[in-house]
């Protein structure tokens, strides 16, 4: 494995934006490129993330390509997942050694629909989805399970409020090899891993986030004495599970994205990594752990360990 580092990050998050995907993206991509001091032609691989169900329109990533300026044609892939998984695909691609810079971006405009309801379509289409359990209902089940298991008290959980799903876009530039040597304020990805759990709610232990814990172990981030940790999830109570699963020391400053703040679905995970990077780039931390999640009740999780560029 060779070192791959985050060179820059830019994002924009809104409760509701009058801009469309391309308009949101062209701004953050331009900023991320400028901050990395790389030009369009330096980028050897591009990976994007979006989800058609946010806007109720298929092929949302196709028109978003207009924000990149994909001419001459570019080497590019797309995940229908949170942007953190696009980062993962780009990190893998940069291991090959033939290209030294990658652009990762994610976008989503949840404000166009009722995401709490739309998320029902993520469920098993034969046994679960036809019952239309909304995101909040499943969150309620998880919170109840936590209380019943004595993981936390009802007071600690509070009430389950529908997340403020919002609009947003984020872009990140990754560098490796000679471009990493020339970079300043980069954060090296020391480990990155993601794991998925069973889909069936009844087959899972909802009172812990085993996939977060496993991903953290595989990424070398478990029980790590890092300066900061950034985790994200739509519901406030999920912070309790993530803190435990990441097994951080008392010294680590923990930031949770979600709960009461605007939660840009699809962008949130990449944003979490971006926030961790920003702490390192600004000199506020030498090491950081970042977390991303996907699926109902934290079904799938990604953990990334970052360190300041040596």
């Amino acid at each position: 494995m060779r070192d791959v580092a985050i060179a820059s990050f830019a994002q924009a998050t809104f409760e509701r934006s009058s801009k469309d995907e391309v308009e949101l993206l062209v701004d953050v991509i331009t900023r991320a490129r400028a901050e990395s001091r790389l030009s369009k032609s330096d980028i050897g691989f591009t990976c994007s993330a979006s989800c058609d169900y946010l806007g109720g329109r298929p092929f949302s990533f196709v028109s978003a390509l207009d924000a990149v300026g994909a001419w001459p044609p570019i080497s590019e892939s797309h995940v229908e997942m949170d942007g953190a998984w696009a980062l993962y695909e780009a990190w893998v691609r940069l291991q090959h050694g033939d290209v030294d810079a990658a652009l990762v971006y994610a976008f989503g405009r949840s404000s166009q629909g009722n995401l709490n309801q739309v998320l029902s379509t993520q469920l098993d289409p034969y046994f679960l989805a036809p019952l239309w359990p909304e995101g909040d209902s499943l969150a309620g089940l998880q919170a109840r399970a936590m209380i019943d298991a004595g993981v936390c008290s009802e007071d600690e959980i509070g009430s389950i409020a529908t997340p403020r799903y919002g609009d947003g876009a984020a872009a990140m530039v990754l560098v490796a090899g000679p471009l990493l040597e020339r970079a300043s304020n980069a954060a090296v990805i020391r480990g990155i891993d993601h794991r998925i759990e069973a889909h069936s709610i009844g087959a899972r232990d909802l009172t812990r986030s085993s996939s977060t814990q496993l991903a953290a172990e595989k990424a070398g981030a478990c029980r790590r004495d890092v300066d900061v940790a950034v985790a994200c999830a739509p519901y406030a109570y999920q912070e309790i599970l993530l803190r435990r699963a990441l097994s951080l020391t008392d010294r680590t400053r923990f930031t949770f994205l979600g709960g009461n703040s605007v939660y840009p679905y699809i962008v949130a995970g990449l944003s979490s990594v971006g926030e961790a990077f920003a702490k390192i780039a600004s000199g506020k931390a030498l090491s950081a752990v970042a977390h991303a999640t996907s699926g109902p009740c934290l079904q799938q999780n990604l953990v990334c360990l970052l360190e300041v560029q040596p």
């Binding site: 995940v79 998984w85 469920l123 289409p125 891993d193 993601h194 794991r195 998925i196 889909h199």
Partner: peptide, 18 residues
């Protein structure tokens, strides 16, 4: 997310490309 169980992916990394 729904197909993780059927594809034996539980506890493993799983990615979705489109």
């Amino acid at each position: 997310l729904y197909l993780a169980d059927a594809l034996g992916a539980v506890g493993k990394p799983m990615m979705r490309v489109h």
